[in-house]
Every structure is written in structure tokens, then in C-alpha cells.
């Protein structure tokens, strides 16, 4: 009993220590984002004595946050919608059509999941330019569909196999055509895995850096991550403003995380275990 208690305390201490390390950088960035440059250089650990909101107003004026947020939303929204819808359609059909061909197509999609982005980035940039979608947030969203749909197919195929076929047959007897059946009967049943897919892709697309960097040509189209990156330009290295912009960038996802953490954490476990 006593031993148990002791080890429990020990266990708690280690966890708290790791937890502190985990949060320390975020905490540091947040408290220092309210300080002046002098305060940062002289007493980085202290809580700010006066709150310099000017850091935030300046960061806001430097990058058009509202526009950047909207751009990020557009890209992520289109990307996720396409990945979820098209991926689940294909995944469902592949799972319900047994045979060699399905297997080949499935493997064909899967094999791409190992391709490093660096292998296709040059030709992808050229392709986007050829079909005239380089420099548009909508176009960037469409590209994400192409890059992310494999994973979505992979996850839905696994999930569909756990759904009994009787339901579709019942719908068929009721006279619904295949697409209707899919939308009305299958999609709702798939929703747990679709949420997982949505979350995994949200984390990826929202936070992605290199692809937007190559694709977006106009400052006004920059996603929020890209906008912050430009702040790090050669002549603009002042920490208060940078830290404020880091906080602004991170807030949307952290907020989403606080509210949706159960779905996010379960989604990740789900996504991995299904693999």
C-alpha cells in the first residue's frame, strides 16, 4: 500500500516535469509576446509588468490577419471536403468490389503514401502552373485533395468492411440508386472515420508550409503560416512583433483543440490503429 502510494507520487512528479517541458516554450512565447524588446532581453522569465498590446496591433497591421485566416480556411476547407468526400466514395466502392482489380487500384493509391513530397514538388509546381491554378487558394485546396485522398481511401476501406451489407441492400430494395444509397445510408455510418480523416487533414493542411510557399504567389493569398514566415524577413527581426504573430497563428488551432480534443485525440489513435 505504502509502496504504491510512493510510486504514485513519483509517477506524478515525472509526469508533471515532462508536462512542464512540453508547455514551457508555448508559455514563454505567450508571456513574452506582451513585453517590450528591452524587457525580453533583460527579464525573459518574468511575467510582463505592463501588457504591450501594441505588439499585437503592429503584428495585425503587418500581416492582414483576417485575410490570411480566410485564405487558410479556404484552402483547408476545400482540401478536407474533397478528401473526405472523394476519398470515402472511392474507399467505399473499392471495399465493396472484391477482386484483383480493386486490389491493384487500392495498392496503386497506397503506394503513393510513401512518396516524399520533395520527389514531386518541382513537377507539381509546374503542373499547377500549366493548368492555371498556381497562385490561387482554391487551386491549392484542390492540390491537397490529390495529395491526401489516398490516406482517406485507406481509412474508409478498412472501415467499410466493418459495416454489414444488409443496410445497403435494404435501401436498394426501397428503390434508391447507388449514389443516393451512399449519401443517405453509408456516409452517416462512416461518420466516425470521416471525422478522423477530417481532423488528420486539418492538422496537416492548416499547418503545412512548403506547398503553400511554392504555390501561392500573391501576398494577399498567403495562408496564415506563410504570412508569419514573411515576418521573419531579413530586416524585421524584432521579437515582440514576431512572438505576437506566433501567438496569433497558433490560437485558432489551440482553440479548436481545447473544444474538440476528445475527437482529435481519439481520431489520431483511430487513424493509426486502423493502419
Amino acid at each position: 500500500m505504502k509502496k504504491n502510494r510512493l510510486s504514485s507520487i513519483f509517477n506524478m512528479v515525472i509526469l508533471i516535469a515532462f508536462g512542464a517541458i512540453s508547455l514551457f516554450p508555448i508559455y514563454m512565447v505567450v508571456i513574452n509576446s506582451f513585453k517590450s524588446q528591452d524587457q525580453i532581453f533583460n527579464s525573459v522569465l518574468q511575467l510582463p509588468t505592463t501588457l504591450h498590446f501594441t505588439n499585437y496591433t503592429e503584428a495585425f497591421s503587418q500581416i492582414n490577419i483576417a485575410q490570411a485566416l480566410w485564405n487558410s480556411l479556404t484552402v483547408t476547407g476545400i482540401g478536407i471536403a474533397g478528401i473526405v468526400l472523394f476519398g470515402s466514395m472511392a474507399g467505399y466502392k473499392l471495399a465493396r468490389t472484391p477482386g484483383k482489380l480493386s486490389q491493384i487500384i487500392f495498392l496503386f493509391f497506397m503506394s503513393s503514401m510513401l512518396i516524399p513530397f520533395h520527389s514531386i514538388m518541382i513537377t507539381l509546381t509546374r503542373m499547377a502552373n500549366m493548368i492555371g491554378i498556381q497562385g490561387s487558394t482554391v487551386g491549392l485546396g484542390l492540390i491537397y485533395i490529390g495529395l491526401g485522398v489516398s490516406m482517406s481511401i485507406f481509412l474508409t476501406t478498412g472501415f467499410v468492411k466493418t459495416i454489414p451489407k444488409e443496410l445497403e441492400e435494404a435501401a436498394k430494395i426501397d428503390g434508391a440508386n447507388e449514389m443516393q444509397t451512399f449519401i443517405k445510408v453509408i456516409l452517416p455510418l462512416l461518420s466516425p472515420i470521416l471525422v478522423t480523416i477530417g481532423i488528420l487533414n486539418l492538422l496537416w493542411i492548416w499547418n503545412d508550409f512548403l506547398l503553400p510557399l511554392l504555390m501561392l504567389t500573391n501576398v494577399n493569398d498567403y495562408t496564415i503560416i506563410l504570412s508569419v514566415n514573411t515576418l521573419f524577413g531579413e530586416y524585421n527581426n524584432d521579437w515582440p512583433k514576431i512572438l505576437a504573430s506566433l501567438v496569433i497563428t497558433t490560437i485558432p488551432l489551440i482553440t479548436a483543440y481545447v473544444f474538440l480534443q476528445k475527437y482529435i485525440l481519439d481520431g489520431i489513435a483511430e487513424g493509426a490503429v486502423k493502419g
Binding site: M89, I120, R126, A128, G146, V149, S150
Partner: peptide, 22 residues
């Protein structure tokens, strides 16, 4: 085809063709 074409189209345009090109 109806179910697979959309996925395949995007996949081909932004993954497959760039890969072959690469």
C-alpha cells in the same frame, strides 16, 4: 467509375503525373 473517377482524377493530376514527370 462514378465512385472512383473524382478521387482518381485529383490523384492523377497532382500525384501520379508529377511523380512520373519527376
Amino acid at each position: 467509375l462514378m465512385f472512383l473517377t473524382p478521387a482518381f482524377l485529383f490523384y492523377a493530376l497532382f500525384m501520379l503525373i508529377p511523380l512520373i514527370g519527376a
